[in-house]
């Protein structure tokens, strides 16, 4: 049973210009998407830069005004509520950002950084608060003396752990992770991803995992949305997407994952360029006459593809 639904979410930005700075055009950053979240699952949101994946994450949590659409949380409409700072919704939905450094206040000690969500939402006595902070640090595997330190004293991986600890402070149901490991090195990336999986098991968390790295998404996610120009072009379980991609754009993304062996790279290069030519030739078919990506059509219980009709899906 899903605990949260997003219905026909749209985020449009006005382009102003001309006389009196009037609105001359719109950017359709997110243009009508539907999502559902079930407890304990990880949802991947994949696409290239500028496709609207970060905007989606920010719109859900309330950092971005939404043009139209609804967000239902446990049956309640929270679309308006999510803007207020003290709303119950913010206890349940938290976010981790890509840049672990700039999302921590450089002039606050770790204890104060972690205390902020606790003070906002959890009415604890100072002693309980200290205990909670110790617990949080223990969960993310940081030594107890890090409480008194400042963010700059930690490495990138450690800072990302502190971010995760802060997100966990209010026992949320959903954590939106916007490219949480793309700024980290390979070995540290593995540490953080493992750790995210561990806390997920322990607390029954749901993740919305926003990323452009298909290798990481494959490792982390149960269900994947592929986003292109503000719309979903394909969504399905991990198996649907990786073993049976249907949309041309999904195929292109999968095709561009670098192989991990130097063997046969000449052949791969040739295949890649042939595919690129084919892609250029056929991608116009993915849009309707208004230049919008087609609506999603179900082709199995879990697998949806954007197409003009079922016949088009080969």
């Amino acid at each position: 049973m899903s605990f949260m639904q997003i219905i026909d979410l749209k985020v449009h930005y006005p382009i102003r210009g001309g006389f009196f700075n009037s609105i001359v055009d719109w950017v359709y950053a997110v243009d009508g998407i539907d999502m559902e979240f079930e407890q304990g699952k990880t949802y991947g949101l994949v696409g290239e830069s500028g496709c609207g994946k970060s905007t989606t994450g920010k719109a859900i949590i309330g950092l971005e005004k939404i043009t139209s659409g609804k967000i239902l949380f446990e049956g309640e409409d929270v679309t308006k509520e999510r803007k207020s700072r003290t709303s119950h919704f913010h206890r349940e939905v938290q976010m981790i950002f890509q840049d672990s450094h700039s999302s921590l206040n450089p002039r606050k000690r770790i204890a104060d950084i972690l205390a902020e969500p606790i003070r906002n939402f959890l009415n604890l006595t100072p002693r309980e608060e200290r205990k909670k902070i110790d617990e949080l640090l223990a969960i993310v595997g940081m030594p107890g003396d890090s409480k008194e330190k400042f963010p700059h004293e930690f490495s990138g991986g450690q800072k990302q752990r502190i971010n995760i600890a802060r997100a966990l402070a209010t026992n949320p149901k959903l954590i939106i992770a916007d490219e949480p490991v793309s700024a980290l090195d390979l070995s540290v990336q593995a540490q953080v991803l493992n750790f995210m999986k561990d806390v997920q098991k322990e607390f029954g968390l749901t993740y919305l995992f926003i990323s452009h790295d298909l290798g990481v998404v494959k490792h982390m996610c149960d269900y994947i949305f592929i986003m292109y120009k503000g719309r979903f072009v394909e969504c399905g379980t991990k198996q649907d997407i990786y073993q049976n991609p249907k949309h041309l754009y999904t195929k292109r993304l999968l095709n561009s994952i670098p192989a991990t062996t130097p063997l046969g790279r000449e052949k791969r290069k040739w295949a890649r360029q042939e595919f690129e030519k084919m892609y250029e030739k056929h991608i116009h078919k993915a849009f309707d006459e208004n230049g919008r990506v087609y609506d999603l059509i179900p082709i199995s219980d879990t697998h949806y593809v954007s197409a003009s009709s079922v016949k088009e899906v080969v």
Binding site: S187, V188, A190, L193, V216, H219, Y242, T260
Partner: peptide, 24 residues
């Protein structure tokens, strides 16, 4: 070897990635 081992493999079904202990 540890670096190669910590790459997320497209074809592996392992639950956990192999991280390198410690930091540079």
């Amino acid at each position: 070897r540890l670096l190669f081992n910590s790459m997320p493999q497209l074809h592996s079904t392992n639950e956990r990635l192999n991280a390198i202990e410690g930091i540079v």
